[in-house]
Nucleic acid binder design. Structure first.
Length: 416
RNA sequence: GUGGGUAUAGCUCAGUGGCAGAGCGCCGGACUGUGGCUCCGGAAGUCGCGGGUUCGAACCCCGUUACCCACCCCA
């Protein structure tokens, strides 16, 4: 047997309904907020992510699926959507084409990590981006959109964390302050943290090693080192969140893993879905568009993990059951032909009607109808055929009546 | 890349050296053409794979692969 490759999975009937619910809800909410869907290729030039996601990130350094194409070009399977959306924004001058460049997309992403609960090599994201708006009110709108999505999905027990990581002006001084505050204590931290202290001090805040927490808790906070502009911006973002009535926690440890984030960062964390508890994360990336060769335009957005949202959906979520309106059981060859004609007519009238394909016994056909949860069964045998009627059985009550064959379609439609 | 756990029927799992099992599901039957409940019968297995020990291995030993969970990191 050839099995699906590691970290990929088939989403089967019984589960796919929850995916459809998540995707349909997301599209509805995004459209309501005025975002337009776009779809971009799954493969891109490797360079796009090296420059966009960041040469120093783990995603690019060790998790990206990349290969050399037959003409020698380096191709990558996208590990995230933002660089692709920025590329499309620039390539098609969407700022000219759209009244407001507010876009969303959804689809598979690829990262070569060891799979675990809520993390796969092919995973799926919902992704929202806004380009060219500096005003903090758009930070507020994007976070409100994220929060509304979570609420519309019925997901509870989540926490919204918000922070500001500053900009290229103020971040270096904060990083320096971090290292200075650590001082000799660096020696007492875990190996990962010691490496981070040199490579990217902000990431020390990601550490989960219990022994390190006392030292980390005492470290300075990003928001105390913001430059005037960043501080004013962040204060305004927080005011908007208050205006929108969105409950959030200020998390000075929310620094996020991608190089391009500036100023506002945020994350929605859910319990009960495993160790990978971030269902949604995003922030502002004011330098990215220019860095990718576009005009000097700011940007902000977020990505939500579909697998994680599906895990976080309430157990009580009741999705409408898919069932045929009527099942047609036929006995004997002449009746089978009449049944197929009736089947065609029902379907042309927009009715979900099913039949048994193999010529089985009536008993088997009834069993099939029951299993499909069809509320009505049309029984067509020699007797019915001779009278130009069908017997209609209501499965719930086991009651049975006769209906003229010519009125069968109408009968189903009126009893739906 | 690292650590731990698991691997037996379609699914969930029992089975600690002596004939491969259960529940659910599936197929058929219980007075000619009637579902669910009950009863009877049936199909279905390379016990993950490869070696080793043994008269004999699903079971013990070695190796290997896959999956799950966790670390790193991230959605």
């Amino acid at each position: 047997m050839i099995a699906a490759i590691r970290g990929t999975q088939d989403i089967l009937p019984g589960t796919i309904e929850r995916w459809q619910f998540v995707e349909a809800t997301a599209c509805r909410v995004f459209e309501q907020y005025g975002y337009a869907e776009i779809r971009t290729p799954i493969i891109e030039r490797e360079e796009l992510f090296a420059k966009g996601t960041g040469e120093t990130t783990d995603i690019v350094q060790k998790e990206m699926y990349a290969f050399t194409d037959k003409d020698g070009e380096r191709i990558a399977l996208r590990p995230e959507a933002t660089p692709s959306l920025v590329r499309a924004f620039v390539e098609h001058s969407l700022e000219q084409a759209m009244a407001v460049p507010k876009i969303y997309t959804l689809g598979p992403m690829f990262r070569r990590e060891r799979p675990q609960k809520g993390r796969y090599r092919q995973f799926h994201q919902l992704d929202v981006e806004v380009f060219g708006v500096k005003d903090p009110s758009v930070d507020g709108e994007v976070i409100d959109l994220a929060w509304t999505l979570i609420r519309e999905l019925g997901i509870t027990g989540v926490e919204l964390a918000v922070n500001s990581v500053g900009c290229p002006v103020c971040r270096p001084s904060f990083a320096a302050a971090l290292v200075a505050a650590l001082g000799e204590d660096v020696q007492t931290l875990c190996g990962d943290c010691q490496r981070r202290a040199v490579a990217n001090p902000l990431r020390i805040f990601d550490c989960k090693v219990p022994a390190d927490q006392r030292v980390i808790d005492a470290l300075p906070h990003t928001i105390d080192y913001l430059c005037d502009e960043c501080r004013t911006h962040f204060e305004a973002v927080r005011r908007y969140l208050d205006v929108f009535g969105i409950p959030y926690t200020l998390s000075h440890r929310l620094v996020r893993g991608l190089d391009y984030y500036t100023r506002t960062t945020f994350e929605v964390l859910a319990g009960q879905i495993g160790a990978q508890n971030a269902v949604l994360g995003g922030g502002r990336y004011d330098g990215l568009v220019k860095q990718l060769g576009g005009p000097d335009r700011v940007g902000i957005g977020f990505a939500a993990g579909v697998e994680r949202l599906v895990l976080a959906l309430p157990d009580t979520l009741a999705l409408p059951e898919k069932r045929p309106a009527v099942f047609i059981a036929a006995i004997g060859e002449p009746a089978r032909e009449a049944a197929l004609t009736l089947l065609r007519d029902l379907r042309r009238a927009g009715v979900n009607a099913q039949v048994e394909y193999e010529g089985r016994s009536l008993k088997s056909q009834m069993k099939r109808a029951d299993r499909l949860k069809a509320p009505l069964v049309f029984i067509l045998g020699e007797d019915e055929l001779a009278r130009g009627e069908v017997s209609v059985r209501r499965m719930a009550t086991s009651s049975q009546e006769s209906v003229p064959l010519s009125g069968a379609v109408e009968f189903v439609k009126t009893s739906q």
